[in-house]
Amino acid sequence: MFFLQGLYDWLEQLAGGRYNHFWLVHLSFRSLDKALQVYLFWIIYRLIYLLRKKSKQEIVRKNKEIILWLFVFYVILLYQLTVFRWGFNFSTAFEQLRSLDHVNWQPFVETLKLTNGLTLFDFIYNLFGNIFWFVPMGLMLPALLKKSKQIKTLLIGFGVSLSIEVMQFIFQTGISDIDDVIFNTLGTLLGLLVFSGISWVKNKVKNRLKED
Rank of each mutant, 00 (worst) to 15 (best):
R61Y: 14
D179A: 07
A143K: 04
S199F: 09
L118Q: 12
F108P: 01
Q106F: 15
Y74E: 03
F158L: 12
N104M: 12
L32Y: 03
T82A: 07
M1H: 06
H26S: 10
W200S: 11
G16H: 02
S99V: 04
L190D: 05
G174F: 03
L47P: 03
G197N: 08
D101M: 09
K56W: 11
I43L: 14
I44D: 07
L154I: 13
T82C: 06
N184W: 05
S196C: 11
L77K: 01
F123C: 01
N184T: 03
L154C: 01
K146R: 15
L36Y: 01
L47E: 14
K56A: 15
W133K: 08
F71C: 04
L97T: 02
I178P: 00
G138H: 01
I131V: 15
L70Q: 04
K210Y: 07
L155D: 06
Y74Q: 04
V166I: 15
N126K: 13
V166A: 14
E211C: 03
K113I: 02
N63I: 13
L14K: 13
F84T: 03
V181C: 05
F73I: 06
R30E: 11
T119W: 00
K53Y: 02
G6E: 13
K202P: 00
T119V: 07
F73Q: 03
F90W: 15
V72F: 06
E211I: 05
L7G: 07
G87D: 04
K204A: 12
K206L: 12
G197D: 10
N116Q: 13
L11K: 00
L11V: 01
I198W: 08
V60N: 08
R18A: 13
K147D: 13
K152S: 04
V60D: 05
Q5R: 15
L78N: 01
N130A: 10
E95Y: 11
S28Q: 09
L100R: 05
W42L: 14
H21L: 08
G16A: 02
M140Q: 05
Q150K: 08
F123P: 00
Y49C: 08
F41D: 03
V181I: 15
A93V: 05
D177K: 01
Y45S: 09
H26T: 10
K204H: 08
N184H: 07
T111D: 02
T82R: 01
S55Y: 14
V166P: 02
F128Q: 03
T173G: 02
L47R: 12
M167I: 02
L139F: 12
T115Y: 04
N207W: 10
L100A: 13
V109Q: 14
Q13A: 14
F73C: 05
N89A: 12
Y79G: 02
L189M: 11
F123V: 01
K147R: 15
G191S: 06
M1V: 10
L190W: 07
K62H: 10
D180N: 06
S196Q: 14
I156R: 00
L24W: 09
F3R: 04
V60R: 08
L155R: 05
E65Q: 09
I198A: 11
V38W: 11
D179S: 04
V25T: 08
